[in-house]
Computed example of a mutant assay.
Amino acid sequence: MLSKRPHQVIGFHESFAYERGGTSDMLLKALISDVPTWLIPGDSLRGGHKPDLGKFPAYRYDQAHRDLQQAGLIPEP
């Protein structure tokens, strides 16, 4: 998805967990890529917040960062 260079990523999830899941992975990679990101926790568009990058486990951050580098979506160190 990030290869399409989105201007914003919005995730919808009723039981979002920073530790696991596809929505979590998508939002984490968007945050690492500096794409504005928003999470709607449930089916109401009235709520929502920016996911906190610091709440993702370090091992998930590291893996997502490596994945993005290997895909050429963020620069290598």
Rank of each mutant, 00 (worst) to 15 (best):
M1T: 13
M1N: 12
M1G: 08
L2K: 08
L2Q: 10
S3N: 12
S3I: 05
K4G: 13
R5E: 06
R5G: 07
R5W: 04
P6S: 03
H7F: 10
Q8L: 12
V9F: 00
I10V: 14
G11V: 06
G11Y: 00
E14P: 08
S15G: 07
S15V: 06
S15E: 09
S15R: 11
F16S: 06
F16H: 11
F16E: 04
A17Q: 15
Y18T: 02
E19G: 10
G21D: 09
G22C: 07
T23Y: 07
S24F: 01
L27Y: 02
K29F: 01
K29M: 09
A30G: 05
L31G: 02
S33H: 10
S33N: 15
D34S: 06
V35P: 01
V35L: 00
P36A: 04
W38H: 14
L39P: 04
L39Q: 07
L39T: 07
I40R: 10
G42K: 09
G42H: 10
D43C: 14
S44R: 09
R46N: 14
G48Y: 06
G48A: 07
H49T: 11
K50P: 00
P51T: 03
P51E: 01
D52G: 13
D52Q: 12
L53G: 02
L53Y: 03
G54Q: 07
G54H: 00
G54E: 09
K55Q: 15
F56N: 01
F56C: 03
P57F: 14
P57Q: 09
P57Y: 13
A58D: 14
R60A: 10
R60C: 12
Y61N: 06
Y61M: 15
D62V: 05
Q63A: 15
Q63L: 13
R66M: 11
R66E: 15
R66T: 10
D67C: 08
L68D: 02
L68Q: 03
Q69N: 14
Q70S: 15
Q70N: 14
Q70H: 15
A71G: 12
A71F: 05
A71M: 13
A71H: 11
A71T: 09
G72I: 14
L73V: 05
L73I: 01
I74N: 00
P75D: 11
E76L: 15
P77A: 13
P77T: 08
